[in-house]
Computed example of a mutant assay.
Amino acid sequence: MAKHIYVIRHCEAHGQSSDASLTEQGFQQAEVLADFFTDKKIDRIITSPFLRAIQTIEPLSKRGNINIEIDERLAERILSTRDLPDWYEKLQATFTDMDLKFDNGESSNEAMKRIVNVVEKTFKSESEHTMIVSHGNIMTLLLKNYNSDVDFQFWTLLSNPDVFQLSVKDHEVTLERIWE
């Protein structure tokens, strides 16, 4: 039996803080996302505790009467606890040196381990069709775990929202972008 996890990047938001809400366009995107999944079976929804991730999946949750589970491990990766004016270059460097970390932040390997743990546990659960709603950087690290070609450039090409399907059958994981 194959199991599927839909890995979703949140819709457009008003910033990066944990309490940043979706924009007006983001709320419209959340409705389009719910429409996109109309014909797909969903057993379970797990999301980051960040408001924008929760708001992204609420329309689908309400339509399908599916409970939203919050998992702290799906929160966006912390690059640093201080403001980094050159954050873009620093983030890029963390894709080259996966153990590189800045001022109380997480290395790429640490963040990857955190989100991969959620996915591996989900693959072992009873659910056949699970949604995981998270954020661009940590989502990219998750996908990199299953496909070594995923890199910083891949992250720059993500959209809000974005959807990938991870499937496992006979212990083989496949990855496919399913959002247009």
Rank of each mutant, 00 (worst) to 15 (best):
151 D>L: 03
35 D>V: 07
55 Q>V: 03
20 A>S: 15
154 F>D: 08
95 F>T: 01
54 I>K: 15
76 E>Q: 03
85 P>W: 00
45 I>K: 05
20 A>P: 11
20 A>W: 11
67 N>G: 10
175 L>I: 11
53 A>W: 10
29 Q>C: 04
74 L>Q: 02
63 R>W: 01
152 F>P: 03
18 S>T: 12
125 S>Y: 08
43 D>H: 07
155 W>N: 06
138 I>W: 01
73 R>W: 09
4 H>A: 13
102 F>G: 03
152 F>C: 03
135 H>G: 04
160 N>R: 04
106 E>V: 10
163 V>D: 01
111 A>D: 05
92 Q>H: 07
73 R>Q: 13
28 Q>K: 15
14 H>P: 00
72 E>A: 12
48 S>D: 14
75 A>I: 03
72 E>F: 07
167 S>F: 06
52 R>Y: 12
165 Q>D: 11
140 T>Y: 00
138 I>H: 00
48 S>F: 13
85 P>H: 01
147 N>E: 10
176 E>Q: 14
120 E>K: 12
77 R>N: 02
113 K>M: 08
69 E>Q: 14
172 E>F: 09
117 N>G: 13
179 W>F: 03
146 Y>M: 09
27 F>L: 14
31 E>T: 12
95 F>V: 00
67 N>R: 14
60 L>Q: 13
68 I>R: 05
5 I>N: 01
159 S>C: 05
11 C>Q: 07
67 N>C: 12
179 W>G: 01
61 S>L: 12
128 E>G: 14
127 S>W: 15
180 E>A: 06
12 E>D: 10
57 I>V: 11
110 E>H: 04
141 L>N: 06
71 D>A: 00
104 N>Y: 12
94 T>K: 00
180 E>K: 10
59 P>H: 03
35 D>W: 08
33 L>Q: 09
56 T>Y: 11
116 V>T: 13
9 R>I: 05
162 D>C: 07
48 S>N: 13
7 V>T: 06
143 L>K: 07
159 S>A: 08
126 E>I: 13
89 E>S: 04
13 A>W: 07
166 L>Q: 02
58 E>R: 14
167 S>V: 03
131 M>S: 04
141 L>V: 08
88 Y>H: 09
30 A>G: 05
68 I>G: 07
129 H>Y: 15
85 P>Q: 02
90 K>L: 14
140 T>R: 00
65 N>K: 15
73 R>M: 06
74 L>W: 00
6 Y>N: 04
3 K>L: 11
24 E>A: 14
95 F>P: 00
116 V>N: 05
64 G>H: 14
104 N>A: 12
20 A>K: 11
76 E>S: 01
47 T>I: 10
30 A>N: 06
24 E>Q: 14
3 K>H: 11
7 V>Q: 00
13 A>N: 08
93 A>V: 05
32 V>D: 11
117 N>D: 14
29 Q>G: 04
178 I>L: 00
136 G>P: 00
141 L>F: 08
5 I>T: 02
101 K>P: 06
150 V>D: 06
125 S>V: 05
113 K>D: 12
73 R>A: 11
70 I>M: 09
49 P>L: 09
62 K>C: 03
131 M>N: 04
134 S>V: 02
155 W>D: 05
148 S>T: 13
49 P>W: 12
14 H>G: 01
169 K>A: 10
147 N>K: 13
148 S>M: 06
177 R>K: 14
45 I>Y: 13
